[in-house]
Nucleic acid binder design. Structure first.
Lengths: 180, 180
DNA sequence: CTTACCATGTAAGGCGTTACATGATTCA
DNA sequence: TGAATCATGTAACGCCTTACATGGTAAG
């Protein structure tokens, strides 16, 4: 129950402020949602069909310069369903970091390996932090637009998190050096 | 490939420094690993059988005060397999926070709901931070023991992370008040 | 002309939780 | 006596990724 799928809510949520194709949805997921959520075509398209069967979305076939596209829009029933999910309590927030798993399970069996994993992790964090800071910069100038406000909050979450991760990396590397 | 199961490595890693039953393994997962990993009996016991078939662990039936238990130990082959995985690059670190999903998708449709979710999240963080600080306190006095060092690093990771989360919660709540 | 992007979808198969089933011991 | 903990396992079922299959357009 706590592990039920959320793709329907993700789609409904995205459609609640603009019409999108399945392809567009994937781009949104890989963009703004990337930091805290994921999803592939193999899960998007079937969910879209299911939502249509349930009357929560409507599709419209279009031909834009010879290219076929199916644009989905949310229905009243879809909005109701979304609103309900939104007020329900959060079921699960989870983190699965293989880096920490290797660190813990490796148990210092090979200190150099531990260092390599932490450094790799730090590099990734620095990169992602840069991306988020760009988002933040762009969003700050448009905070009056209602639909950017909450996006901004999630970006701030990512920034604070990555900053903390990077600080931890430095602390951990120093600590390991001391233990040598 | 990037989504292959890790339960075998988790078990091998835990067995690499003490013999355990399936039940014990579950307790370790719900304890020290809880912050960054998970797993249920339905995944532990079958993996244990599989590892035995592969010759990576050995089992020993015991009767402790009338209670049957099966204690597993790691074999040389198991240690080799673990060592290999440990040096392989990290495939995936991921975060799935429904709290952020609701915040982003809700898009301020209901500010009060957003506040409630953030406050709920903050409470959970404060609680978890307390638990981790206790772990930290206990570990600090035993840092000379080799097998506590890396555990300590993962605890420090959790502490820094939760501290950052809590700061974000306060910032976000203030921000939302300003937007009212 | 070729690479990148737009666009939709299915099938196989693995992963992992939940619920079920069972039973002994310890502690209050 | 009842609740909590110790202890092992299976079955059903859902979720999701990966890989496959196809084909058009835009840009360099």
């Amino acid at each position: 129950m706590a592990n039920s799928k959320k793709m329907d809510q993700v789609i409904l949520g995205l459609l609640s402020h603009e019409n999108l194709t399945g392809y567009d949805i994937k781009k949104r997921i890989d963009g703004a949602l990337k930091f805290f959520w994921g999803g592939s075509y193999g899960s998007i398209y079937p969910t879209l069909s299911q939502l249509e069967d349930e009357g929560k979305v409507m599709k419209e076939y279009q031909l834009v310069s010879g290219r076929e596209r199916i644009e989905y829009s949310i229905t009243t029933k879809g909005r109701d369903s979304l609103r309900q999910w939104l007020v329900n309590p959060v079921e699960k927030d989870e983190l699965r970091y293989e880096t920490l798993l290797k660190l813990y399970l490796g148990n210092g069996a090979d200190m150099e390996t531990a260092r390599v994993h932490i450094k790799g992790f730090e590099e990734k964090c620095i990169h992602e932090l840069g991306v988020l800071r760009m988002y933040e910069y762009n969003l700050k100038n448009n905070l009056n637009e209602e639909d950017h406000k909450y996006y901004y909050l999630t970006v701030r979450f990512g920034i604070r998190t990555y900053e903390a991760y990077i600080e931890w990396c430095d602390e951990a590397l120093k600590q390991i050096d001391m233990w040598k």
